[in-house]
């Protein structure tokens, strides 16, 4: 059977592969090569070794700042999103009226696109700050916490859905047995529920971390990096390096390579932890 399928490479595999080559493989390799090149014009390109990688950090301190800003944002938003999402999941798996309606409402913001979300929250945050005669562009702290609130608003429902599915998979006889033994709610939570949903916690932690690191649209629409690049995250900094200064394409590409390595490391760490858990079980 394998042999007869093999002859059909051109029909089954080739169309998708051509698209994959055009939009990923060639741009990826070309981009990697360009990160070692300097542009004098768009067609005149010379090899410069690691110069772009050095310039990424030395030409200004925005990239370094963006890294720490992104890191701080990722840490704060990962913690808040997962705690709130888990608490909501616990609440909605108990018998309170209207759980389905609540789930529907809480998940909804997840479908709204990043640009739309950013503008919605810009109105709300500027509206609140207007009482103090300020705007979000005044202080980087407003932008930071604005992004955190926005990210929570968007992602809490998604993570909640994952946690709810995990909690509902816990065998009820286990919880009933604990009830008979006289365990209170906190004991059940610590000894049964949290250990049972641990795989989902791992998934959600990584999902929120990657979402936080890759954030672009929301950052652009909410603050656009204002004031003075102070709320610029990594993805936005890379975009601005590419497109707002002529001759910096190589530096932008070098930053993109560093960014890719960073994101890939998070993904590999995720693969490693989930694989290890699978073997343990």
């Amino acid at each position: 059977m394998e042999k007869s399928i093999k002859k059909y490479f051109a029909l089954f595999a080739l169309p998708a592969l051509i698209c994959f080559l055009i939009s990923f493989v060639i741009p990826f390799i070309w981009g990697f090569v360009l990160s070692f090149c300097e542009f004098t014009t768009i067609t005149d390109v010379t090899f410069v070794g690691f110069k772009n990688y050095v310039r990424a950090f030395t030409v200004d301190n925005y990239f370094t700042h963006a890294f720490f800003f992104t890191l701080a944002f990722a840490i704060v938003s990962v913690i808040t999103i997962n705690i709130i999402a888990f608490a909501l999941a616990l609440a909605l798996t108990r018998s309170i009226p209207g759980t389905n309606a609540f789930r529907t409402i809480f998940f909804m913001p997840n479908l709204i696109g990043g640009i739309v979300l950013g503008w919605i929250w810009q109105v709300i945050i500027n509206g609140v700050l207007a009482y103090f005669e300020k705007t979000i562009a005044v202080d980087a702290a407003y932008g930071f916490w604005g992004l955190v609130v926005l990210m929570n608003w968007q992602n809490v429902g998604y993570m909640m859905v994952i946690y709810i599915a995990a909690i509902q998979n816990i065998p009820t006889d286990m919880l009933e047995a604990a009830d008979i033994d006289g365990a209170n709610y906190w004991t059940k939570l610590r000894k049964i529920i949290i250990p049972a949903v641990m795989p989902s916690i791992t998934i959600c932690l990584f999902l929120t971390t990657t979402n936080g690191f890759k954030l672009y649209d929301q950052n652009l629409a909410l603050t656009a990096g204002n004031p003075n690049h102070q709320t610029e995250m990594l993805a936005l900094n890379i975009f601005n390096t590419f497109y707002s200064r002529i001759g910096f394409e190589g530096v932008g590409q070098a930053k993109a390579v560093i960014f890719t390595i960073l994101v890939a490391m998070i993904a590999l760490l995720q693969l490693y932890t989930t694989r290890r858990k699978e073997i343990e079980n």
Binding site: F20, F239, F242, A256, F259, V263, A264
Partner: peptide
Amino acid sequence: SMIVPFQMVMFT
């Protein structure tokens, strides 16, 4: 390709 962020390939 699933783990590569769009910024890596957007320019090229």
